[in-house]
Structures are given as structure tokens and as C-alpha cells.
Amino acid sequence: MSILELKNTTKTFGDTIAAHEVSFHIEKGEIFGFIGPNGAGKSTTIRMIIGALTPDSGEIFVDDQPISKDPHYKNKLTYVPGDVNLWGNLTGDEVINFFMKTRGYTNTDRKDELIEKFRLDPKKKCKAYSKGNRQKVALISAFLSNADLLIFDEPTTGLDPLMERSFHEEVIRAKNEGKSILLSSHILSEVEKLADRIAIIRDGQIIETGQLADLRHITRIEYVVQAKGDLETLKSLPFVHEFTQDHDSTHILVDNDKAPEFLEALHPLQPMQLETRPPRLEDIFMRYYEDRSDQS
């Protein structure tokens, strides 16, 4: 069952189409990755979901109810942007307590656990916090909420690698508790590590949605080869890309759906060593934009 569904959601600003017929859904207990570069339409889409923007057309559903007809749907969501603004004269602890009170959450042991885990000094005033510490306050508040859907837009901005790991652990914990997560991030390895499914948005349009394994057809796989024959002869093949040499090995990127043809062409060259490296989400993401540049 879906916790969130967007159907042909469109938003324009003058002549600029920020989101065009965006459609996807998030299942309950699912981590959904939402990726694309700046200006692709991620933040516009998220702002429509949280009610900060009204779609020009299309519909958004939370728990199968259109949000346009449910004034209380926001109680089921919590949202953390990439750049958090807090009340400067309040301490971190006071801000967290405020959000706990608005959500009716009273587990102070859990609050203390998260404060320690994210290494936050809760007694400092927010105006004295760095960007990373402001982010921690918002993340702690989000994980303390009883929301069914957690929405994170570039959530680890300003966090060091140790705190990023803490964030990842808490996302998995939230999922295990049955919550759903919408994770929008430029850190592709983060999405690859956490997400059950992903959507790629470009120029305001969703261009792919699915499990990472289902998107392998649009990427390339890396082969590391040592052979007796001249591997340079493979350069002319239309499905071979980024032919580079490293010490005694040759690195070759091959269209994933052309692996049989590549191996057939490689066989006469008497390969002595062959290693394959599976494609990553970053490869999938960049492939789209490379292809678009080639067409422009």
C-alpha cells in the first residue's frame, strides 16, 4: 500500500516548467531515492508534497487521500531541508522539545540517545550553531516524530562522515519501524546504499523509476582486461567507451546490454585476466546526462 503517490503533477513559474507531469509512488516501509542535479525539479516536487507549493495540475495522495481534500495530512509527514533555519535565541534542546511537543512525543530517553549519537551540544543557542549542527537539530527532531513519511532533501549537507553514518543507521531504523522515507540527495552513493527504489528527474520530468537492478540496462559495465592480443582493436566497437590503460591492465566501459558481443570480440585476443566491476548508481545517473549532451 502506498503512503504517497503523485499523479501527473505539474508546476510552472511563468514560462518555466519546474515539474512536468511528475508521477511516482512510495510504499509503506520503503526508502525511495529521488535524484537529479540542481534545477531538475526535486525541490519543487518536494515543496508540492509538503504543501508549500500548490500544483497547477495533477494530484498528490497521502494514504490514498488527495491532499487537496485533507487539511490534516501534514501530520503524517516530517520534512528536513538541506539548509535548516532555526530560532536563534532558542537552544537546540528547546527546539527539539518544541517539535516533540507539537507531535505529542514524550520519549526523552530516545531524545537523549539521538543527541548523544549525533554529538550535539543541546545547551548552545541555535545562532551559535554551525550549519552541520543546525542540521543535526532538524534530523533529531525528525527521527523523534511519529510521522509515517520522513522527507529528507539533501539531509547530510554539513555533516562529517561519522555523522553521515549515524544518519544512515537512523534511516534504516525508521524503515524497520515501518516508516517510509523520501531521500533526495546529490550523494549518489548514499542513495545507492539506502534506497529500495529510485527515481531520476531531469528538466522537471521523471525519466526512470525502479529498483537499481532494473536500471542496469541504461548504464555501462567496466571490464579490466589483460590479453595477449592488441586490445586497441576494440576501440572501434560502437558499444565500447572510455578505453584507458592502467599499468598492465586495460579498463573498458561497455554498454551493459552488449556484454555478449563484447566477450565474443574479446575472445580472439586471448584474454589472460578479466575482471568485471558492476555499474553504480552514479554511472546510471551520468549516462543520462552524457547522452543528453551528445544530442545537444
Rank of each mutant, 00 (worst) to 15 (best):
I252S: 02
Q226G: 01
T250V: 14
E242N: 10
R165L: 14
S166T: 11
T219N: 06
I206A: 12
H241L: 00
I221N: 03
L194W: 00
E261N: 10
H168D: 15
K235I: 05
H247M: 11
R165P: 06
S180Y: 05
L149H: 06
K228L: 05
Q273V: 10
I201T: 12
Q205R: 15
I252M: 09
L188E: 00
I172D: 09
M163C: 07
I187C: 01
P268Q: 10
S166D: 14
N176A: 07
E190N: 13
D248I: 00
K179Q: 15
I207V: 15
I172W: 07
A259K: 13
Q205V: 15
K258V: 02
K193P: 01
R165N: 14
A199E: 14
L183W: 11
L212D: 04
N256R: 02
T219I: 12
E177R: 08
V171A: 13
V225A: 05
P271Q: 04
L182E: 01
L194K: 02
P238V: 09
E192G: 03
I218S: 14
K235L: 01
S185Q: 03
L253H: 10
S236Q: 15
F239T: 12
Q226N: 07
L194D: 04
Q205A: 15
I252P: 04
R202H: 13
I221V: 14
G158D: 08
D148Y: 06
Q226P: 00
V224Q: 05
F152T: 00
P161M: 07
L234C: 11
D160N: 06
S180L: 11
